[in-house]
Design a protein around this nucleic acid. Sequence first.
RNA 1: GGGCCCUUCGUCUAUCGGUUAGGACGCCAGAUUUUCAAUCUGGAAAGACGGGUUCGAUUCCCGUAGGGCCUGCCA
Length: 493
Amino acid sequence: MVSAQLRLKGHTSRTGLRKGYCMGGEASVVTRFAPSPTGFLHIGGARTALFNWLHARHHGGRFLLRIEDTDRARSTPEATQAILDGLRWLGLDWDGEAVSQFSRAERHAEAAKMMLEAGAAYRCYATQEEIEAFRAEAKAAGRPPLFVSPWRDADPATVRDAPFVVRLKAPRTGETVVEDLVQGRIAWANETLDDLVLLRSDGTPTYMLAVVVDDHDMGITHVIRGDDHLTNAARQTLIYRALGWEVPQFAHIPLIHGPDGAKLSKRHGALGLEAYAAMGFVPEAMRNYLARLGWSHGDAEFFTTEQAIEWFSIDKVGKAPARFDLKRLENLSGQHIRAMADPDLLRELEAFAAREHGRQFTDAEREALLKAMPGMKERSKTLVELLEMGRFILGKRPFEPDGKAAKVLDEGAVAMLAKLTEHLQDASWTAPELEAEVRRFAEAEGLSLGKVAQPVRVALCGRTVSPSVFEMMEVIGRDESLARLRDRIGAAA
RNA sequence: GGGCCCUUCGUCUAUCGGUUAGGACGCCAGAUUUUCAAUCUGGAAAGACGGGUUCGAUUCCCGUAGGGCCUGCCA
């Protein structure tokens, strides 16, 4: 994959970031994709990114990227790289530079301080042991294990010379409501929400705080993410309120499950995007497939990215988790390959060959591939298959038949090829005329066309599957075709 | 344990209370055919369950079952 720039920008000034609003009075849309760099970009993350991207592009808004690298132990530059590469491969361009969440720690701490000063947060000196003991006791007594800090109502002036975390002073009564674009109106009784930690005892921000501050500072208008964050939306709403900030629109999309309905695991679909690239899927097909998973536009199944942008509507995303279906992806991939313009497809194939096999094409090969492309692409569902179709151009003599192909070349077939080769010596070398010639030959010999064409195919490319034998002959030319036929005749002799 | 969410053919989905419940992938049969693929025709295939509300529920409400998410000084 293409190498990405790893420089992540940390924004420190709030004002410089709040460009999400345009003059017209109506707030323009700003979305973001905010992965944590602890692994590759899997299919679920890719779809979340796609939905954010589609939503922004549909509304003519902006799509931002933020790397949530506050977990220093698990975050790696390699993972960040893999995510950027994956997004680039999928064709999801983000606006501006990717923001490093870690680099904004000071700003997060500042927000915590604001809440502390406003009395919306408090210092909690409870130790891990005390908290664990509390939970164990609560559980034993059949009470909810939500930790209730004894420091919540302590005099804010009491400052101890001991480690502390900063906790949000969440409301104990009433309810917190999230108006979710996908899930609808969801309410939580506030007693079921605890005083979450904002700042750890080492002064670093937690995810819950960092997300809120960053989304606010980046001017995010729509938070579109996996529905595993649904409960977090309630907690974060509390933080927005404590800070006196406007709460963005939430849209929690269902997660993708494996073919067996269980959560996606490495066993089935949870491969990195690069794995699908290696399987030869074209990005256009991947976008189509992912967009259609959980979202629909009438009966439209096959569509371009431009159409997806035009049609996309976040509130038409379904609530139920969808299963990953490789067959369906393959089918869509085949349709997109067939629909692509030959030069575009050639470029895609060339990039694939270079990336996966380190294979560069020569000018002559490029020309031949382009000529053969119509016949090749209608037989391929993936770039892997397309490359295999092109082996009669990209391979070199002699074309040794593989197992299945060798069986086609029995004694009779070789004798037939010898005879046919003589016939073809002076034939006019275009696909239609070659076909007519071979048909005449087959008829004269009392053979079906298949009995003649199949051995020819094997001689030309060493396989039983390929584009039309006549097209292949035309593309590689008379001399090369006859030479390949003689290779097989000679090999048998 | 508590909170919250989900449930239409095997899979992805359509359905603004009234439809022979539609489409697509996959599958089966046939047509076409130089292989493969594509294409064409036809077919099997669904409202988790139980109650309500209603003249009428897949659609609205409640419950049950099953599945998922959260319940961390992870994100």
